[in-house]
């Protein structure tokens, strides 16, 4: 088991290292220079610009040779210092990232986990019940066939604009301040629901389609036929099929996680809802390279951490891994 663990860990460390390096390199490859473009708005005298520029370069850690900057970047990173935002100067990137992660946890975590659980259930049902398969699955195919943003736009149009049940955008409305009051919680939930709902529906389609195929494989497999010939009850076979079918779904979750989180960017943009993905997208638009770095890195860290967690869970629920690695030891 330790070996499995160790191997995974090495992969994670390498991934992290590559991510950090790419992350550091990217802003330095762009044509143009962040400080210069920031100062394009400055209308004052040349001497004042010079002074501003020197000051900003120091504050942004852009002076020194590239290697030195790279080492500094790592040193700061390990201290949890992601630098300062250019556009929201002098705010710290780590603070900005933290403000956004909260919303990712609020929306993505429940949307992904619930859609996974419910999707697997419905998928398993569809796998053995032809009627469900015939009527519900095409609908789910429809969900996964729509680009996230288009789906989100239609959800906004129907539930927010036409029916007026929910607000069209943002995390909470005007005239409301974050506070632990009933009023704020209601406002927050009303704004939270549609982004959550969109992510949930899209995920639901995805997972139930996956599970449906898995369960059909399992139910038609040799061991299931064997069980059936032994006279086992359908329920027992169904249970086995579900348990075996879920395993690839767990791996699937690990693989898809990064894609789901990134797909959420367009949904966040449609709802003008905060989140790491949207933060990153805004940073690109506004050429705020330090926020871009911080958000990208945090996004990858988040995905890696979730993957790691799934790996551990997988280890416990898949007997094969447990056995194969403990035998070797």
């Amino acid at each position: 088991m330790g070996k499995y663990f160790g191997k995974k860990l090495i992969i994670y460390i390498i991934t992290f290292f590559i991510a950090v390096t790419i992350n550091w390199l990217a802003p330095r490859f762009i044509p143009g220079d962040p400080v210069t473009s920031l100062l394009a708005q400055y209308q004052g005298p040349a001497a004042g610009r010079q002074m501003l520029e020197t000051r900003l370069r120091t504050l942004f850690g852009l002076e020194g040779s590239l290697i030195q900057q790279y080492i500094n970047f790592w040193a700061n990173l390990l201290r949890g210092d992601l630098g300062r935002s250019i556009l929201q100067f002098p705010r710290e990137v780590s603070e900005i990232v933290k403000n956004n992660i909260i919303y990712d946890i609020a929306v993505l975590l429940p949307a992904i986990s619930l859609s996974w659980i419910v999707g697997n259930k419905i998928g398993a049902m569809a796998g053995e019940n032809e009627k469900i398969d015939r009527y519900i699955m095409p609908l789910f195919y429809g969900f996964v066939s729509s680009p996230y943003f288009w789906f989100a736009i239609i959800v906004v149009f129907v539930f927010a604009h036409s029916l007026g049940w929910f607000p069209t955008a943002r995390a909470y409305g005007a005239g409301v301040r974050p506070a632990f009051t009933l009023n704020f919680i209601i406002v927050f939930l009303r704004h939270w629901f549609l982004p959550f709902f969109t992510m949930f529906l899209v995920g639901l389609g995805q997972w139930s389609i996956g599970m449906r195929n898995m369960v059909i494989y399992e139910i038609e497999s040799n061991y299931a036929n064997y069980l059936r010939s032994l006279g086992a009850r359908q329920k027992l076979i169904r249970n086995y099929a579900f348990r075996n079918g879920v395993l690839p779904q767990v791996t699937g979750l690990a693989i898809q996680l990064g894609q789901i989180v990134s797909g959420a960017i367009t949904v966040q943009v449609v709802f003008d809802y905060p989140g790491l993905g949207r933060l990153m997208y805004q940073a690109v638009q506004q050429q705020d390279f330090f926020v871009l770095q911080g958000a990208f890195l945090s996004l990858i860290l988040m995905v890696l951490a979730a993957n790691f967690l799934i790996d551990i869970i997988y280890m416990f629920i898949d007997p094969r891994i447990r056995l194969s690695y403990s035998e070797e030891e």
């Binding site: 991934t15 996680l257 989180v261 990134s262 960017i265 990153m280 690109v284 990208f296 996004l299």
Partner: peptide, 23 residues
């Protein structure tokens, strides 16, 4: 190993970054 590294990276953010740098 390489594949897994790329697999865990969220794709859209990478595309956003690269696309934004293409003149």
């Amino acid at each position: 190993g390489l594949t897994n590294v790329f697999l865990t990276f969220p794709q859209l953010p990478i595309l956003i970054v690269v696309a934004a740098y293409l003149p």
